[in-house]
Design a protein around this nucleic acid. Sequence first.
DNA 1: AAAAAAATGTGTAAGATTGACACGTTTCCA
DNA 2: TGGAAACGTGTCAATCTTACACATTTTTTT
Lengths: 233, 233
Amino acid sequence: MNRYPIENRILVAIDCIIFGFDGEEIKLLVIKRNFEPEKGNWSLMGGFLHHNEDLEDGAERILYDLTGLKNIYVEQIFTAGRIERDPVERTISVVFFALIGIRDQDKEAVNAHNAHWLSLERKPPLIFDHDDMVAKAIEHLRYKAALHPIGFELLPERFTIPKLQKLYEAIYNVQLDRRNFSRKILSTGLLMDTGEKDDQSSTKKATLYRLDQEKYKNKFSSFWHFMPHPGIE
Amino acid sequence: MNRYPIENRILVAIDCIIFGFDGEEIKLLVIKRNFEPEKGNWSLMGGFLHHNEDLEDGAERILYDLTGLKNIYVEQIFTAGRIERDPVERTISVVFFALIGIRDQDKEAVNAHNAHWLSLERKPPLIFDHDDMVAKAIEHLRYKAALHPIGFELLPERFTIPKLQKLYEAIYNVQLDRRNFSRKILSTGLLMDTGEKDDQSSTKKATLYRLDQEKYKNKFSSFWHFMPHPGIE
DNA sequence: AAAAAAATGTGTAAGATTGACACGTTTCCA
DNA sequence: TGGAAACGTGTCAATCTTACACATTTTTTT
């Protein structure tokens, strides 16, 4: 037996949602679609799954082809399958997401590929059901960040506590108390003082920290109860 | 244009993981597979997605056909896509899960369909990558139950606090303090005293509660910080 | 029939955590 | 040079958590 006696094989797509953080707000990586339908409109990085590749490999291939980004850890979040979600033909799409710190070398690669970082707050509508995918991805990010120290993935190797706070404020769209945030984060023991100061910032230089990789790995799988109290709707 | 110029359409399956709770331990609903390959071995409830149905509808159709269970709320958890996960041909499978209270009428329907409730602790190996799917589903359950009052879905309409505690102990595989658990649960305000006692239990009869449906719906989307502290691995 | 055992329900006190602030320090800029 | 802006540390009351003691109800044992 080489095939199931069934006729309804379906086109399987992959779409990638990449979040970045520039120190002020969360950005979404998108691309201008270069084939019909919806040619020229904003789209997530997408493509079709090949017969001989795993889902994650497909996501990484598509990401590299469309943006030049390599070695990105992608994580599957859900599969979109509404019958009419693609007007051309029935297509289900497995959606992946990734968090990256926006670095200069990445910026060049990305721009060379006609991709762009858009502000999550002020982004234009995307094609098909991609806005819905992004909404689900934000929800997923909020879930994960509430339970795991995942926020660091969005920051450069060295970062300040105020930047980290801005990140969490952007994720949950809340205002946090500077003093209490600092205390809570430091009490996790995940941060190591580099001894250096941030020379980017305008007034008093903030201390640059980096992740204690050892503790980070150990603590990652356990809950860490970091979430703003009022709830995230 | 009615089709994309691509040749690699793929078979899309759906598999359903149904958890139940009998007051002592968590059960998994499985079925003896009645077609090749792996005919006669334990399997999740599965089938192929039809061309004209949404994913959720497919899951509910398959569940009804194989077990007689109706009006079950299913929730997608992930999509399994390893190249060689099905030996017959490349198949990706969208995995759904649902929580149900094991009721007597369901038991009959289920048995009539050759399906069985197996103890999650002592279950035999399942076919293909179904064991992996179950492991992911447990993880998903732990996540959700840590943040949302989802546990009630696994209980009958009226239940006692000690039963609820047993459920949480089964989900997280921990021991909880009776007194503290009771206080924490009652403080949520989600439980309403029915005034009745559980006549099933052996020694002192425990009070039967039921969910305050109004508050349940309101509170559902917000975090509720219920999780055992040591972490869940 | 009384005593022991098992399970449930209520209370309490020490310790830890949180939330809301005060106050001092460093750096930039007018 | 003085003030504004951003950062860092400290305090304290209120709340929540943890670890128990003790009383009550029902079943089982002797």
